[in-house]
């Protein structure tokens, strides 16, 4: 269905809001990367569970939660209506 053409350039505040959404979309991708990273360390040589691994995973976890919490406040405002999308 044809929709009215969105404006090509945006003011500062909406521009920031959009980038925040992009960041929110990127967050899980970063998360996947960080959670799969240890696969590259713990191949053959190290078999046993090390405390370092535990601490690494929990640090990543806390980091992701913290960033998501910081994003959530900004994302809640816009309700994602037509002109706000992308």
């Amino acid at each position: 269905m044809r929709r009215p053409k969105p404006p090509l350039f945006l003011a500062r505040a909406p521009y920031r809001r959009r980038r925040l959404r992009d960041a929110a979309r990127l967050l899980p991708v970063v998360g996947i990367f960080l959670l799969l990273l240890p696969l590259l360390w713990t191949q053959d040589s190290r078999m046993a569970l090390r405390s370092g691994d535990v601490i690494y995973f929990f640090l990543v976890w806390v980091g992701l939660i913290g960033v998501a919490a910081a994003f959530a406040a900004g994302l809640r405002g816009g309700d994602g209506t037509d002109d706000e999308e992308d």
Binding site: R25, P28, G31, L64
Partner: peptide, 13 residues
């Protein structure tokens, strides 16, 4: 728990 964490922090998707 990592799976749900990723789904929830990626809630915008």
């Amino acid at each position: 728990y990592f799976g749900p964490t990723l789904v929830f922090i990626g809630w915008w998707w």
